[in-house]
């Protein structure tokens, strides 16, 4: 690792990182299992996984809010049987 660092011409940060990665020769073996799917298409599917995690989190929040609204509406029906004038 130390040798690889010294060989790098210190032009830009990108060059250093790039050469470091190339020098350490990853991946050491062909991807298998879930990696064969997730690393395809320039790792595009990793982004899909991230987007879906966020989206499912938002769905969870939305459904919880709905449940609270259900309860609130029910409570309101019980407590205020007469119409509060709104028009």
């Amino acid at each position: 690792m130390e040798d690889a660092r010294q060989e790098v011409p210190p032009d830009t940060a990108e060059a250093i990182y790039d050469t470091l990665w190339a020098a350490s020769e990853v991946p050491t073996r062909a991807p298998e299992g879930i990696e064969r799917v997730m690393l395809a298409e320039d790792k595009l599917y990793v982004v899909l996984a991230v987007v879906l995690i966020i989206w499912f989190g938002l769905i969870f929040l939305l459904l919880r809010t709905d449940r609270r609204l259900d309860n609130l509406e029910r409570e309101l029906e019980d407590r205020i049987p007469e119409d509060a004038s709104y028009e």
Binding site: T65, D66, L69, E73, L76
Partner: peptide, 19 residues
Amino acid sequence: WVLYTQRVRFSLIKLRLHG
């Protein structure tokens, strides 16, 4: 429509409580 309707439900509760 879902987000809008959720907010409408909330606002109607408020409307009913406060006029």
